[in-house]
Nucleic acid binder design. Structure first.
Lengths: 200, 200, 200, 200
DNA sequence: CTATAACCGAGACGGTACGTCACGTCTTGGT
DNA sequence: ACCAAGACGTGACGTACCGTCTCGGTTATAG
């Protein structure tokens, strides 16, 4: 069941690893995911192609890792959501921030690339959920639990479902460009989600 | 000074058009979107490559057309939703059907391919919304208006938002494989959406 | 028994064919056979690698053809040997010329390349004999027959053997650098060969 | 300012040296010279690549050494030619044996490899002549001197030339596959050489 | 009797070239 | 004019080896 050739990870060149991931990130921003090539990454990173193939199984895996690396460092505590005691206000703040983030053209290419990868590769999807989505989601749920304790959300609300109802429409509009992505939309989503899961 | 290339659509070979679209559909199902090539489509269709390039601007466009063709024929009236008078029951019926459809491995490859295209190509996204999404959406909204008239939905409910809250989480789970996609989930979504937009 | 893919020779680009052969010849002279690469030939010829692989099966075949092309044009009559009536004088003239030719550094690289190919590829060896060696050999034998008629050579002399005795030592010295390659050696070879095959 | 690299020969691992040479010989026989790689030799010999590069300057040098090793052991006296008093009979015996040796497919690959190396590398050619060719040649010349003393060969015959006239045609036919290599040919060569250098 | 310097196995590394695939353009001959 | 066929220049693929460069580990003299 093990892979046929297992390079010795202790000998791995950290310099090369970082250079490859950096080059991949830069190139995605510059030429987009579709026109990204392993050769270009290797050239930009000053690395032999084999060094990429030795440690990653596909272009998608490199790209994925390069984006994953972005969200690291701030692992754990750093990603708590604001808690003013007013769940509606706090969620609107957060969703408006998300909307603003999506509007940043800098994030456009990499995030579309990431989604393209995840849609077509179940394995990467699993890693994505574990490494990138899960911590953020947990932070969000923590805030929701606080709201439940404060009686602002039904005590038996399915928090996963709540988050999906809240975020999926946002993500869909952005991905499919199926409608305006503005503060009004963010607010409307928060209102709808809170209505759907209010106490009583 | 005139545009360099304007093929005469009246002379277009219908036989070739159909063969290309059919070949594209078959190949997507067989090898997936990523490994699909124009050359393979041409070979399978018994067509010169130029005949493809003459009428479509990119691989995505061919693929897109080939999938678009699937949803045609039943244009207009055919896609009305059930209306038993009970919006909750009707929506659950429809969403459960959608869930079942997504579970069909036959649809897997083409729909993921379609989404990959749409995510990365704004123009195709527009055509998709106009040609494929809009008619279906309109049918759904028609049913919702009926529910509004029956007092089962708030009179001022934003129907677009309602549909997004209802369908986006479904689509997201399927695309990202972020959770089970079953009848229970469908029912929970309908319940949440109806709670968010109930009258009063 | 036919090759798996047979390109249409009538469509072949003469421009590319000539450019490839020319580039190959130039590069052999410049960098030698061992360091010659298909990629370099393609680049120099302004041609895609596939165009080379389409028409030749190996680097050796290209190189071989490029050298073969050199000896064409003068096919047939052009290669008669001098016939003054004195076979000894004539052979010495010819062998001294051959010695001089071998001393030309311009010929060094290509001819060594040619021999390397022929030694290791029986098929190329056969083509070489038929296309390059045979015509020259026939011309030489014609001169020897004239000498036989003049009574300067045994009437029953094996002319093939005569030529081998005459030329093989020359070629060997050059290839293996096993001794000086000068006029004295040429003369000595002619003397020995004539002694071995004199009349009576 | 001293030479950068001077491995200490006294510390050299004999086990590795032999394993490398053996592996090289085996691989030449198995895959031929052209497809032989340093990495394959190292792997087969259970040796690090550096150990090869430390002691040999090129692939050719390794191959050459591996073949050279074959002809050692019997250095010096062992390689005397038969001397029955009849030079014609003795030479025919020897040449027929050589012909038989060339027909052995076991020798095919290595000897062609050796020649390929020698043709393209003047330095190896010099070593070859000194280490492999010279002793054999001296033995042959010793037999010829005996024939001269017996009056079977011209007293002033150039023995080097004699050997070239005798052996070069043989080697050429084998290398270029330019004709049958049989006993008849061997006999004809001996006859021709003896005619060329007979007394008087 | 260490220690310290070389060789050694292993194999990661930056590279070059391989031979293949598909791209999108262009040309030819047939309908 | 459109079409099937496919040659072409281009560029990327993933693989094989190149020759160099660390890494421990193991000898085998020199202190």
């Amino acid at each position: 069941m093990a892979s046929r050739k297992t390079p010795d990870a202790t000998r791995r060149s950290e310099r090369s690893r970082v250079a490859i991931l950096t080059a991949a990130r830069e190139l995605i921003a510059e030429v987009g995911y579709a026109k990204l090539s392993i050769e270009a990454i290797a050239a930009r990173a000053g690395v032999g192609k084999q060094t990429i193939y030795r440690w990653w199984s596909s272009k998608g895996a490199v790209v994925f890792d390069s984006l994953l690396a972005l969200s690291e460092g701030a692992d754990g505590e750093g990603i708590a959501l604001p808690d003013t005691g007013d769940i509606e206000a706090d969620l609107k703040t957060v969703l408006r921030a998300t909307v603003a983030e999506f509007a940043d053209p800098e994030f456009e290419a990499p995030i579309r690339a990431l989604n393209t990868e995840i849609i077509n590769d179940a394995e990467l999807a699993a890693i994505y959920r574990e490494k990138m989505a899960a911590p953020v989601e947990e932070a969000k749920k923590e805030r929701l639990r606080s709201a439940q304790r404060a009686g602002q959300l039904a005590a038996d609300a399915d928090l996963d479902l709540f988050l999906e109802v809240l975020y999926a429409p946002l993500a869909q509009r952005w991905l499919l460009r199926s409608g305006p992505l503005d503060d009004a939309f963010a607010d409307a989503l928060v209102d709808a989600a809170l209505r759907a899961f209010r106490p009583e």
